[in-house]
Design a protein around this nucleic acid. Structure first.
Lengths: 217, 217
DNA sequence: TCGCTTTCGTTGTAAATACAACAGACTTTC
DNA sequence: GAAAGTCTGTTGTATTTACAACGAAAGCGA
């Protein structure tokens, strides 16, 4: 377990908590380590989540299968990230969580995390706040993505995304962290159709671009 | 302020907290009451949110305006509900929050809510957990909606939504809480096109329906 | 430099969608 | 019971998109 303290130290769950305190809290929070092979399920649809879960090795996918067997990926989870936090409230988890590679997860007892223990762990309150902030971050990502995707046309989705980037950077010129295919996947549209639409917008004088650099005009 | 205790009592923030404790906490959490006329802004894009906010009268809309002035509604807020919780982490709020009618909001100091005060408020920990759970609920709503909307075709969106309802109710027959227009707005598609697609699916034998009652086959 | 791969723009076609307009069934209201 | 309004299905058309396929440009390794 202690081999992963370096990773836990960098995770959002233990932000502003020292290494010694983390080691001390491992027992207090009933930390348990579990290994998964590629393709194994960490959670299945309908499971109850009773642990705060941190990925410390590998990669996970959060995905959903519908009534007809179609699969869609909700999000991916990287090392150091929390997942399934939103299901600690008691709702059954709606998605499958699958190991995309050999992975290790550390589970903390949710009840112990969410209940402050008298005086033994002075940094416990910080951890609770961190958990809340981590969930906030997830939430913001979702709202942002929803705002883009809910637009009807490809052009509107692009406008939504690009104008947000402009606001975020405070400038009409900015670089996006996606290539064309990734941007298309992010906005849930076809790459070639999106590429064509971008060029049409450029020709109409709405914007200019070079690779991943854009300028709104 | 005390006239709203009945409403606060029913809000998620004070679940499992008695009326007397709520009254006691109003001062501890630095509760402040503020009134808004229709059209007034509770928060504007870019504001910092430093209060836990509960709507106790009226109705609010969370909406976003993009670079070109287009408006899109993210969600609505009803009496007793928390809003803008995800921005307590320090990020500037991405949306405008506007009063859709004459409204009253009670603000609690976020720092005081998130930090347990020694012993004065025995139910303080419960409130912190409640805040976390409220955010979880928001999160689930978002993930669910995203799962539907990110599908490419109207049929896939319908499949996604209806198969989820089937899973949720544990039956192939269920009633949805929307009429056709509301369902279309929820899934971000055109009503008439959706209606046509539903009938096509019925004719193909995928499902049957009568008003808001559906049966998957 | 030569192949190989990746990325991006471009085009054509088939499919899906938005939009507008309308008719029938059903509700509500007076 | 009549009138007005709402909800739903239906249809036609213009627009938009997905999909497939291809070529040019850039990056990369041998």
């Amino acid at each position: 377990m202690k081999e992963y303290v370096d990773i836990l130290k960098k995770s959002k769950l233990f932000a502003n908590v020292g290494e010694d305190e983390i080691v001390g809290m491992l027992a207090c929070l009933d930390a348990r380590e579990k290994h998964y092979k590629e393709g194994e399920f960490v959670f299945r649809q309908g499971d109850r989540v009773e642990s705060v879960s941190v990925l410390v090795r590998g990669a996970l996918l959060v995905q959903a299968d519908d009534y007809w067997g179609n699969r869609s990926i909700i999000t991916s989870v990287g090392v150091g990230e929390l997942f399934a936090q939103a299901y600690l409230a008691g709702e059954a988890i709606m998605n499958d969580v699958v190991a995309a590679a050999g992975s290790t997860v550390i589970f903390f007892d949710a009840k112990r995390v969410l209940t402050t223990c008298s005086s033994a762990c002075p940094f416990h309150n910080q951890v609770i706040r961190n958990l809340f902030f981590a969930l906030s971050e997830t939430n913001l990502r979702l709202v942002t993505k929803l705002g883009h995707i809910q637009k009807r046309t490809t052009r509107e989705k692009l406008m939504s995304y690009l104008s947000l980037m402009s606001k975020k950077t405070g400038s009409n010129s900015f670089t996006i962290p996606f290539n064309r295919q990734e941007l298309a996947d992010f906005l849930s549209v076809d790459r070639s159709a999106m590429s064509a639409e971008l060029c049409k917008m450029r020709d109409e004088g709405l914007l200019r671009f070079n690779k991943s650099s854009f300028t709104l005009t």
